[in-house]
Computed example of a mutant assay.
Amino acid sequence: MLALIFGNLKSFRGWKLLVFFSTIHLLLSNCKASEQHMVPNVVVDELIYLNLPSSAPLQSPGGWIYHPGGFRGLLIYRAFFNGNADDFRAFDRTCPNHVNQSCGRVSVLTDNVMTACECDSALFVLFDGTPAAGNRSQPLRQYRVQFFGNSIRVFN
């Protein structure tokens, strides 16, 4: 059948065509459509001043706050990874499993390490938003953060 498509494969041109189409096939078969996140992509551009009393928990590593914005609110976390003072994370509080339900919001647990969905208690790691063991959900929607010394900008 390949001989019908490429002609005489003994010729140099036939081999070049075979290699070309095989390469294209391999490249296209390895391309996957990026999985769309369940949480809607809304415009986020928030400036948070770290010297305000409402942002006091962000002064120390492991501190976090809830902030208006995003789809169902923002969760800002100060990771302070490897001694990097400007290591902040920002997540949408929407639970990826329950986007369209009123209970579909995550809340930080008392251990300050995990967040839980209010609908089904599915756990997410606060450090990076990944689902905890046994949770087959997508991770929390994460936003970009810039540090400016006394403020941070959360945006997408």
Rank of each mutant, 00 (worst) to 15 (best):
A79G: 00
N8M: 00
V106L: 03
Y49A: 06
N8Y: 00
G104C: 07
F20W: 11
M38T: 15
G73T: 04
D86W: 09
M38R: 15
N100Y: 05
I5G: 01
S54F: 03
R78I: 05
R72Y: 09
S34C: 04
F80I: 00
L74I: 11
C95P: 04
N51I: 03
N41Q: 14
T110I: 06
T115C: 08
R89H: 02
G70W: 07
T115F: 09
D92G: 01
R78F: 04
W64L: 06
S107F: 10
S54W: 00
P53D: 15
H98M: 03
P40F: 09
C117D: 02
I5D: 01
V43S: 13
D111T: 12
L74Y: 10
S102W: 06
I76Q: 01
R93F: 00
R72V: 11
D45L: 06
Q59L: 15
H25T: 15
G104V: 03
N112S: 14
R93W: 09
R13A: 01
F71I: 00
V106H: 03
D86C: 09
C117R: 06
N97R: 13
T110S: 06
E46Y: 04
N97M: 12
F81P: 01
S11Q: 01
Y66F: 11
F71N: 05
N8P: 02
L9A: 07
H67A: 14
K16C: 05
V106M: 01
G83H: 03
P53Y: 12
P57C: 14
C117F: 04
L75I: 14
N97V: 09
D111I: 09
G14K: 07
A116Q: 13
K16H: 05
E35V: 15
A33Q: 13
C95T: 06
A90T: 00
S54R: 07
A116W: 07
L26F: 15
K10G: 14
G7D: 12
W15Y: 00
C117K: 07
D86T: 05
A79V: 03
Y66M: 03
K10A: 13
W64C: 08
S102V: 15
I5K: 01
S55H: 02
A33S: 12
C119M: 11
E46A: 06
R13Y: 01
R72A: 12
L26C: 14
G63S: 10
L26T: 14
H25Y: 13
N51T: 05
M114T: 08
E118D: 15
